[in-house]
Each structure stands twice: as C-alpha cells, then as structure tokens.
Simulated assay, not measured.
Amino acid sequence: MPRRPAHSRPYAVVAGVLISLGLALTACAPEPAPTPTPTVTAVSPVTAEPAPEGPVFHPDGTAEDNLPIFEAVTAQVWAASGSSSGRAYIDALVAAGFDESAMQVTQDLTTVGHAAESMQFSVRWGDTQCLVGQVGPSTGNPVTMVMDQLAEGRCLVGNTRPIDW
C-alpha cells in the first residue's frame, strides 16, 4: 500500500475536525419557530357579524339546500340521547325552522309498548320532494336523504302518528 506524504495528514485531520464541528453545531442549533397562521373569521358583509357556523336553514331554498341542516339536527338528537322518540326529532326540526304542518312521523313504540327498532320522520318540501330521516337501534347511524313525494303529497308509507303535542 503506498504511503501518503507526511504533509497531507494534517489537512485530513483538520478537515475531519471541521466536519465534526459543523455537524455538532448543526445538531445543537434550535429549530426555527413555526410561522403563526392568521385566524380568519367569515363575516356577513351587511352586518359585519360572524357568519353562523355549521349548516343553516334556507326557507326559500330547495330540499337539497336544506338537507345539511336536516342531517345535522338529526345527528345532534341521536348523539344527545340515541333517541328513537319521534317527538324529539320533530321538536328539534321545528326549532331549526322547519314547518311542523309539513311533517310526518312513524310510531316510536310497538303495539306492545316496546321501543320501535326503527322509526322515520319527514318534512314535505314544496310540491315534489321530502326530507326523510330514519333512526333506531336497527338502523345504526341516522340516515337522511331527499326523496320524491308519494301520492297526495305524503312522504312516508303506511300509518303515521298525529303530531299533536
């Protein structure tokens, strides 16, 4: 093996020390602080008030426009109680702005007084569509959708109970 001249060794040693020192300094250097992201709040251009969070009721909108709020109300009642009480859903939908006189709800108790495995509720929307929800132990997570109206402007098949509370 050929020998290197003696004068080249000090350069190799100095280079090795400088590389080690550079790595050590890099490892000890603090990481740069993250740049904060500005928070933006949507505001209403007319009133300069914060825009509402989540879905909103659109009284002049379509059934599709109102499906997000119908779905949110349904999910909220279900999450709060896992309820299969028709009244809980109807009352929450009325509070959100839906028209009670356009609603239908199926029985939430069986003929022997047990909680129904599944119940449905609906809101007739316009002349052709319905917002329909279904909840209950056999359903799992709540189901909501827009469907076409049935004959005579009904949304649900079969017997429904009066909304008389």
Rank of each mutant, 00 (worst) to 15 (best):
P2Q: 11
R3I: 09
R3S: 14
R4N: 12
P5K: 13
H7M: 08
H7R: 14
R9Y: 15
P10D: 03
Y11Q: 12
A12G: 10
A12V: 14
A12W: 14
V13I: 15
A15Q: 05
A15T: 11
V17F: 12
I19H: 01
S20P: 03
L23K: 04
T26N: 13
A27G: 10
A29W: 15
P30N: 02
A33N: 12
A33M: 09
T35Q: 15
T35D: 14
T35Y: 10
P36R: 03
V40S: 09
T41R: 11
T41A: 08
S44Q: 13
P45N: 00
P45E: 02
T47L: 06
T47I: 01
A48T: 07
E49Y: 09
E49F: 12
P50W: 07
P52F: 02
G54S: 04
V56A: 14
F57L: 11
H58Q: 13
H58F: 08
D60H: 13
G61I: 07
T62S: 14
D65P: 04
D65T: 06
D65Q: 04
I69K: 08
E71W: 11
E71T: 14
A72E: 10
Q76L: 08
W78C: 00
W78A: 09
W78V: 00
A80F: 02
A80R: 09
S81L: 08
G82E: 03
S83Q: 02
S83P: 01
G86D: 01
R87L: 09
A88K: 06
A88V: 00
Y89F: 11
D91S: 14
D91E: 13
D91P: 05
L93Y: 00
A95N: 08
A95Y: 05
A95F: 06
A96H: 11
E100H: 08
A102Q: 12
M103P: 01
Q104H: 06
V105E: 04
V105D: 03
V105W: 01
D108C: 05
T110Y: 02
E117W: 12
E117T: 10
S118E: 12
Q120S: 11
Q120H: 05
Q120R: 10
F121T: 00
S122Y: 02
V123D: 03
V123K: 02
R124T: 09
W125I: 07
W125G: 05
G126T: 02
Q129G: 03
V132H: 05
G133D: 01
G133I: 00
T139Y: 03
T139N: 08
P142M: 06
T144I: 06
M147S: 15
D148H: 06
L150D: 08
E152L: 11
G153Q: 01
C155R: 00
N159K: 15
T160G: 03
I163V: 01
D164M: 10
W165P: 00
W165D: 10
